Amino acid sequence: MTIMRALAGAAVAALLSALPAGAETPVVRVALQLSGTVNWEVDTIRHYGLDKANGFSMEVTDIAGAPAAQIALVGGEVDAIVSDWLWVARERAAGRDVVFIPYSRAVGGLMVPADSAAKSLVDLEGQKIGVAGSPVDKSWLVLRAYARKVEHFDLAGSTEQVFGAPPLIYKAALDGEVQGALNFWNFGARMQAAGMRTLVNVDDAVAALGLDPETPLIGYVVRGEVLETHPGLGEAIAAASRAAKDKLASDPAAWERIRPMMHAETEAEFQALKAGFLAGTPSPGAVDEKAAARMLAIMTEFGGADLVGDLKELPDGVFHHPGS
């Protein structure tokens, strides 16, 4: 065990002392798409008892998709979901008490065939790009901002985009139906394993824009009243998440156990998925809210009301802070 990990463990232990002694173990009802990559972590948490080791019990319900999960959370049917902090910001601005606990900062990149002549985004002018999601996908907005502010190029106006579900964009990329593809990180890992290469990594684009690539986009979103009812629960959820990632980082058997749910078709794909998941581990400690506010400004500029609604600035309380 490294000194840093030992210190982190001590810090977690100190935080967990906030959980009332002898109190009934909180049950956190989480709604997730069990086909998603978050299930690799959640299944690890539950299998190794990392929730109970941190003073709570995680109860998981499969749900069809993000909109259904968000409705269930707002309606009080569940206590937590996994979503992005931009949605949390919109909800808090509308008066709903939900709080973001970082889970992952994994992002993908715009990928091209290995033999593509493209060396930068501007080389894709007049070509077709596949984008997983919608025109307000966060990674797509980052690349649009990067193209305009760094390469001085209108990526949206000078290319043809095909928006669709991640599996469809993955297939279109491998079949050569698009000349470039921006997909979720796990499909990007599969594309890399299949021989494609990254033209622009979203992390690199974020850094080039003067933003902080350490800002986690995805997290556990928990109803505020649940955290208030159980002091220390936010820290406990964060600790269980970190413990699961530590387990996966240090124990190959933990990956072999969940390998069937990863649906990796080759060893190269399996290794790429492992590496991509672990690379998305958020930095410990509080989220830099000033950095998040700068990212929100970019999202607002390029995504507009379709993404952020009437949101003009980062509301208070979006991010859970240790000890709060």
Rank of each mutant, 00 (worst) to 15 (best):
A13E: 12
D310M: 01
V112N: 10
G276T: 10
S134F: 03
T229I: 01
L209F: 12
A53Q: 10
A272E: 14
P166A: 05
G303P: 07
L209N: 02
A172L: 15
E225Q: 10
Y103R: 15
A64P: 06
A292F: 02
I63Q: 14
K247C: 05
A238Y: 14
V221T: 07
A173V: 03
I237P: 05
P231L: 14
M4S: 12
A31L: 04
G95Y: 00
T61F: 09
L182R: 03
D154A: 06
A238T: 05
D212K: 05
T44Y: 11
A68K: 03
E269K: 08
R46I: 13
K245N: 04
V200G: 06
Q192H: 14
F319P: 06
Q179L: 09
R190C: 06
V112Y: 09
L141Y: 11
E267Q: 15
M299E: 05
P113Y: 09
L311E: 00
R197T: 13
V42E: 11
G36R: 13
L73E: 13
G95H: 03
L182Q: 06
L16D: 01
A305P: 03
A10D: 09
E151K: 15
L278F: 07
A31F: 03
R92W: 05
T229N: 10
A156D: 12
F153Q: 05
L209A: 01
D204L: 02
K149G: 00
G75R: 00
A145D: 02
A8S: 09
L86K: 07
A8V: 11
I81F: 01
E265M: 05
L86F: 04
A64L: 08
E41L: 15
T2Y: 13
E269C: 10
A94Y: 07
G210N: 08
D310L: 07
A291Y: 12
N186P: 01
V226H: 10
L19N: 13
L168G: 15
V200H: 09
N201S: 15
R259L: 04
